[in-house]
Write a protein that binds this DNA or RNA. Structure first.
Lengths: 245, 245
DNA sequence: ACAAAAGTGTTAAGCGTACACCCATGT
DNA sequence: ACATGGGTGTACGCTTAACACTTTTGT
């Protein structure tokens, strides 16, 4: 939007932040990857990530990086793990790309990994730095730069644990109006197992924060499904009670 | 590869590791703190922690630091969160102490915090670097160096979540033979709430990996309690089944 | 009429919770 | 004998899991 404050920001070339953005696309759990196709000759995919600035904290860095590399804002990012093996920056091609992109000599880098979920239909911007961002199924990943394959593996496990603690994150995957089947599929993809249809309806109703709308699916070659929506106010009320135990 | 033979360890003055070692002492959840009482005039307490070496990974750094500052080895350490606010190294006294101890000029430092549990009766060594290590109740902490108060707060919350995922960590708090009451007290301290005695017996038996010994308490002015022990083999069997779901 | 997915209820088993008394030991 | 903590069983409510048929819509 406005010019970035690059002129005043000094990079801190020892710590980076990487963002693992997950989404459900065509019934598959996918991760957003940036493709390297600049003038330099290194080819490949990597997580959106960058060195941090001297003056920003880690959470701020994560938000900034996500915005810069995908155009997405107001996505709730969660720090989940740091990766600091000295061997993670030993691949020559990887380091070559990074030094070219940052205009800095880099040695060892510890990276703090963040996690966010995202509606599949959100459009990501391409920008000057990465030509293209792609949603790639986590089961069909190519070899990525640095240790990004390991980071994604850890992120998927972290999401499963996170869902139990903070169920609302599921709705970050979904459009604001969704059918029961869409919601159930999302859970099935996160947990990687089938769920019983009738039990799922019952459970969903017991939550209390998923409310029916008057809108119905249209143009489907079978009985049309009702759209539901997530009610943040009811969710908050229910969860503030629980945590006061 | 070619620089593998370096014997001198070089500090990496941008990233540190701090270890939050928790234990139950006299029915209180306590944290191990190092007291600063060197020749320099800064007084205070801090978590055992240090800058990492250029050539070690984060897990190795955590083990090394714990060993160096307390003499403890073979303690399972778990990375739980990183702290990187630029403001964490702005207190003049804190920075003065660190520069004195490390013989390096330090600016911003991102720290990766590790967590471990420990049997209360384990003796910690004093060493040349810290005169004394103290177990301090987490509810009665003085102001610590840097943001170590925040780190400990986060660690206590992390332990509670961790217990549900990996129940065996509870036994890191306990001697190898323990009574049901000792075990129950430990849970009560971790969860910070009273548990029903009969229900606790029932639950403990249902676990299957806590087995009775033939030994009984002696010299107590009331009916003597039976000692139990944790059976790692049975635990493993039960938990490998669960995770294969 | 047929294909395709939506929607709906009951039963049984397991789990958590609440609750009160007798037992063994040292003084 | 008394004080102290150890050890035990039952009943209720809630949650989970298994399971099959009718409804609606488009072609």
């Amino acid at each position: 939007m406005e010019t970035q404050d690059i002129h005043v920001e000094i990079l801190y070339p020892h710590v980076s932040v990487d963002c693992v953005l997950l989404s459900v696309v065509e019934d598959k759990l996918c991760v957003l990857l940036a493709e390297l196709t600049r003038e330099n000759d290194v080819k490949g995919f990597k997580l959106p990530g960058s060195l941090i600035y001297e003056t920003e904290n880690l959470d701020q860095a994560a938000s900034r990086i996500l915005k810069e590399s995908t155009g997405l804002t107001r996505i709730p990012l969660k720090q989940f793990q740091s990766f600091g093996d000295p061997a993670r920056t030993t691949n020559k091609d990887d380091v070559h790309w990074l030094e070219n992109a940052s205009k800095l000599k880099v040695g060892r880098i510890v990276t703090v990994a963040y996690l966010a979920l995202c509606k599949a239909r959100k459009r990501t911007n391409t920008n000057e730095r990465y030509n293209t961002a792609h949603w790639i199924p986590v089961d069909e990943l190519p070899r990525l730069l640095f240790d990004h394959n390991d980071i994604i593996k850890a992120a998927v496990q972290a999401v499963r644990r996170w869902v139990d603690v903070e169920p609302k994150i599921v709705f970050d995957y979904l459009p604001s109006k969704f059918t029961v089947t869409e919601l159930r599929r999302t859970y099935e993809i996160i947990y990687d197992k089938k769920l019983d249809v009738r039990n799922f309806h019952k459970k969903m109703n017991s939550f209390g924060y998923i409310v029916p709308t008057n809108e119905m699916e249209e143009g489907v070659p079978h009985r049309s499904a009702r759209f539901y929506r997530f009610d943040p106010a009811k969710y908050k009320k229910i969860y503030s009670k629980l945590s006061n135990n």
